[in-house]
Simulated scan of single mutants.
Amino acid sequence: MFITRESDYAMRVVRALMGETRLSVSDICGREAITAPFAYKILKKLQNAGIVQGYRGVHGGYALKKDPAELTLYDIYTAIDSDMSIIECLNGRCECVRNGQNGVPCHAHDELKNIQDELWTMLRRKSMQDLFGKDAE
C-alpha cells in the first residue's frame, strides 16, 4: 500500500471540515492547498463513503457527516482507495501464485499479511478528533 496524494488530501479535506458547520470547496482548497478539481473528486468519494455531506445551492458546500471522534485515517484512506493492500497478492482480487505452490507455503506472503494487518490496526487506533481536535477548537 502506498498512501497516495489523493488519500493524503482526503485527510486534509476532513481536517478542514472539522469544527465547521459547512465550507465551500474554495474555502477547503484555500485552507489545505488543494486544487478545486482534485477536491471535487475527493469530496465525491468521501460523500459516497458517508463521511461528508454535500449541500447544493447558493449556501451550499460540504460538512462532515461522521463524528470526528469515530472517524479514523483507515476510514478515510479506504474511502479513497478501497484496495489498501501493501502487495498485490493480498488485495483479495489476485491470488498469490507462489503461496501453496507444490504444497509449499509462501512465508513472505504470511509475513506481509501480518504486517498489513498491523498497519490497518495502527491506522484505526486514533480518531481524527484525537489527531486534530485541538486544531479545530
Rank of each mutant, 00 (worst) to 15 (best):
T72M: 03
V97R: 09
Y77C: 09
Q101P: 12
S85Y: 06
A136D: 07
D117Y: 08
G61E: 04
T35A: 05
Q47A: 15
L119K: 09
R31Y: 09
S24H: 03
S26Y: 09
N91F: 05
L43A: 04
L71W: 00
A33K: 13
E88T: 12
I28W: 01
L46K: 01
V97I: 13
D27F: 09
K66S: 12
D81L: 10
G50F: 04
A136T: 07
Y55T: 14
K134G: 01
G30F: 00
A39N: 00
M18R: 01
N102E: 12
D135A: 10
D110Q: 12
V58A: 08
A10Q: 01
R56P: 10
A16E: 03
V14S: 00
Y77I: 11
A16R: 01
L119N: 08
F132I: 08
D81S: 14
N48V: 13
G57F: 07
A49T: 07
E20Q: 14
M84F: 15
S26N: 13
A108K: 09
Y74K: 02
Y40S: 13
T35D: 12
R56G: 08
V14L: 03
N91D: 15
D83E: 04
T121A: 15
E6C: 10
P105L: 10
G54M: 02
L43C: 08
Q101D: 13
H59T: 13
S127L: 00
R22P: 12
Y62W: 13
L64C: 02
T72V: 02
A69L: 02
G92Y: 06
N114C: 06
A39R: 00
G100I: 05
Y74M: 06
E88K: 13
